[in-house]
Design a protein around this nucleic acid. Structure first.
Length: 528
RNA sequence: GACCCCCUAGCUCAAUGGCAGAGCAGUGGACUUUUAAUCCAACGGUUCAGGGUUCGAGUCCCUGGGGGGUCACCA
């Protein structure tokens, strides 16, 4: 679509008809000595504060009286209704809206005409006046002065339907946010949820730390990484796929409770539940194990839901669930057996398990390795039915190279995953702290890797070395923050809880993709 | 990566293969308590791009682009 690179110093940029009209209005303001982009505003009250002030004052006022003292509010002009010698309009600031009532005889002819002719929907405006209540009952500001704070050249999206085009909403999130209050609510709630996660861990004595995003070796999960290159070091780096191995090094160092909230990156497909960069919370606690960590996770989810939604329950896509403890604990083996009749322990080899899985109706490809078949059984038969919060516990060792074996069953590890509404929101285990067992597990991964499993973990010798200094018995948890936020905000896609989801570059006419990315602020359908 | 669906005015949407339209926004006008204000008038188009079929294509076919969905992949 009609996009060209934008340059402030280059040839005049082409504005659309509507944009040019608004630019002309800005020029007319300048000609009359008014800066359409002044440096400062003089706000005395937010919309909400003004509203509260009037409510506190109203009892003292005569009927239809107005506040004797002037207030100044600021905000975006979001509606305007002109009626002869009066104008009604709304200013919206960060937290609320307030109606303006402008009268030609109060504002003065010049200011009134200016407000009508030179101000547009979307402009940032400052208004001074006295608060009163209209006949229709709305607290409003009888304006004695209005001033331009920032002229908008783009018209805001349609007032009734907002911005609904999915692509435009993601590419121009700023327009989505300014047009759709629900979207602002989602991201405000996301922020509060993350604050609640931090508070929960801080209250329990966890130390928030930061570990490398650029890593010389990736690990801690089974995933393909993004690869990059550091020029000065002339060395390959990977964007981290997990925080895990660095956080556990900190337990070796003597910290007993650490956590990190940050971005992980995985070079894989994009869908409703997967984004190439996503926010992960990982926390580790010395002298804890996966059982105590289950209790911690329950308490954490309840606290976050209560702080963000007001109660330990949520509704997602029409289904309501109660988050109150205690959530059922079911072994993976039982859950699979109950769901499809296959006991994977009775089928310890690939061929036998494959046959059993297919007999149960599973769709599994012929070459699938044993642990992956178990995973398929989980996905196809168990997961869709885990609506109420549930912990699946005790996974086969082959699925979990960083988790500690069960003392009474070395074929399984002490691991759990919390499931909610048919999706997994985390992963946790009693951490493997035996350096030689860890090395053996890495070597096993290496064999898988050699056999063509691109997602098998590489051997991290430095991590094994760290474990050789001794790591206390430890419980560790990873929570997919975006997925948790999806549930809390009732959003169907991970893109709806990520402000700027990854998108393919728009094609650049006569240029390359980079140019299009730089000019992507342009309205796709307008030549800018 | 495969399949399905979508792409029309700044935005939200119409248009049996037969003159590209409406609402909102914007422009001009009427209107001194409106709130999806109302009324009058004029304006606004590379129908994603390119090719093809046809007397005639927004519509049918092909190729490409972007997006969404399903699947595949996916601690």
């Amino acid at each position: 679509m009609g996009i060209t690179a934008v340059s402030m110093r280059g040839p005049a940029m082409e504005l659309s008809e509507l944009q040019a009209l608004r630019r002309d209005k800005a020029d007319r303001l300048r000609e009359s000595g008014v800066d359409p982009y002044p440096t400062r505003a003089r706000r005395t009250h937010t919309a909400a504060e003004a509203m509260a002030r009037f409510h506190g004052l109203e009892a003292e006022l005569p009927p239809e009286g107005e506040d004797a003292e002037a207030v100044t509010i600021v905000g975006r002009l979001v509606s305007r209704r002109h009626q002869g010698k009066t104008i009604f309009a709304h200013l919206r600031d960060g937290a609320g809206e307030l109606q303006l009532y402008a009268r030609r005889d109060v504002l003065g002819e010049e200011a009134f005409e200016g407000f009508l002719k030179l101000f547009d929907l979307g402009d940032f405006v400052e208004a001074t006046g006295h608060l009163f209540r209209t006949r229709m009952g709305e607290v409003s500001l009888r304006a004695t002065a209005v001033a331009m704070l920032a002229k908008a050249l783009n018209a805001p999206p349609e007032k009734w339907h907002g911005l609904t085009d999915t692509e435009l909403r993601y590419r121009q999130r700023y327009a989505d946010l300014l047009a759709n209050a629900e979207v602002r609510r989602v991201f405000a709630l996301r922020s509060r949820a993350i604050t609640a996660l931090r508070r929960f861990l801080d209250e329990r004595g966890y130390l928030e730390v930061e570990t490398p995003t650029l890593q010389p070796l990736y690990g801690g999960a089974a995933a393909r990484p993004f690869t990059t290159h550091h020029n000065a070091l002339d060395q390959t780096f990977y964007l981290r796929i997990a925080d895990e191995l660095y956080l556990k090094r900190l337990l070796v160092g003597g910290f007993e409770r650490v956590y990190e909230i940050g971005k992980d990156f995985r070079n894989e497909g994009i869908d409703r539940n997967h984004s190439p960069e996503f926010t992960m919370l990982e926390f580790y606690e010395a002298y804890a194990d996966y059982r105590s960590m289950m209790e911690t996770v329950e308490a954490m989810i309840v606290q976050v839901a209560t702080e963000t939604l007001g109660e330990p329950r949520l509704t997602w896509q029409g289904r309501e669930i109660d988050l109150s403890p205690s959530w059922p604990r079911r072994t993976l083996r039982e859950a699979i057996h109950e769901a499809c009749g296959v006991d994977y322990v009775a089928h310890p080899d690939q061929g036998s398990l494959l046959a059993a899985a297919r007999a149960a109706g599973a769709d599994v490809e012929t070459g699938t390795v044993w642990p992956r078949i178990v995973d398929e059984l989980l996905k196809q038969f168990v997961r869709p039915n885990l609506i109420r919060p549930t912990f699946l516990v005790d996974y086969p060792v082959a699925l979990s190279p960083l988790a500690k074996r069960k003392p009474d069953d070395p074929t399984h590890v002490e691991r759990f995953q919390p499931y909610l509404l048919g999706g997994e929101i985390g992963n946790a285990f009693t951490e493997l702290n035996d350096p030689l067992d860890q090395l053996a597990r890495f070597e096993e991964q290496q064999r898988d890797r050699a056999a063509g499993d691109e997602e098998a973990m590489p051997i991290d010798a430095d991590y094994v070395n760290a474990l050789m200094y001794g790591m206390p018995p430890t419980g560790g948890v990873g929570i997919g923050v975006d997925r948790l936020v999806m549930l809390l905000t009732d959003q169907p896609s991970i893109r709806d809880v990520i402000l700027f989801p990854a998108m393919r570059n728009l094609p650049a006419p006569g240029g390359d993709g980079e140019t299009a990315a730089i000019a992507a602020g342009a309205v796709p359908t307008a030549a800018v």
